[in-house]
């Protein structure tokens, strides 16, 4: 069964029939060639397949292609400028050495891009939490966190606002 949908990827408009069985990940990689979107686990655990849908990160492996109707999708291919200049977030990942094998990088760059674009302030704990849907098997995360902090410069605050973190801090201290 097929269903016609209209959507855009990195600003480019598409309008065609998708298979109702397809995930957004399969559509992006296999049909449209956006292979920067990676398949790790296929079940929502690792975040390698994350893309931005209307600016918000989702795991494309567990997002049906038919749901993309009317949506604006951003993949890693749409982050650098048309002339190939890296975005500030991408530069921060390069500067901090936050890329080893690179498999987790597209997802992490996209999530960090969404955080940087939100204009909100984040505590260190919140930043970790916002990145917690991405597994990295290489770096040990320190360089990734540094890159994310650099990307959010001026938007990191030191307040502890959520009871969740109070609970965590108490647990860590006690």
């Amino acid at each position: 069964m097929f269903k016609r949908i209209a959507f855009s990827v990195n600003g480019k408009a598409f309008n065609f029939e998708v298979d109702i069985r397809e995930s957004l990940l399969e559509m992006l990689r296999n049909r449209l060639g956006y292979t920067g979107t990676k398949k790790g686990c296929g079940v929502g655990e690792c975040g390698a397949c994350s893309v931005l849908i209307d600016g918000v990160p989702f795991d494309s492996c567990i997002y049906l292609a038919v749901w993309a109707d009317g949506k604006e999708i951003t993949t890693i291919e749409g982050v650098a400028s048309k002339s190939g200049e890296l975005s500030e977030v991408q530069k921060a990942f390069v500067d901090e050495g936050a890329v080893q094998c690179g498999f987790c990088t597209p997802g992490l760059v996209l999530t960090t891009t969404a955080l940087a674009g939100s204009g909100k302030e984040y505590t260190q704990d919140e930043l970790k939490r916002e990145l917690s849907g991405h597994l990295c098997r290489c770096t040990g995360y320190q360089s990734i966190l540094k890159a994310a902090e650099k990307s959010l410069e001026g938007h990191i605050c030191t307040c502890v606002d959520s009871p969740h973190y109070k609970q965590q801090h108490e647990r860590n201290e006690g």
Partner: peptide, 15 residues
């Protein structure tokens, strides 16, 4: 709300 934030990760909570 505390139960909600403890669930999954950001991409899972978004959907």
């Amino acid at each position: 709300t505390e139960a909600a934030i403890s669930m999954g990760g950001p991409q899972i909570r978004n959907i």
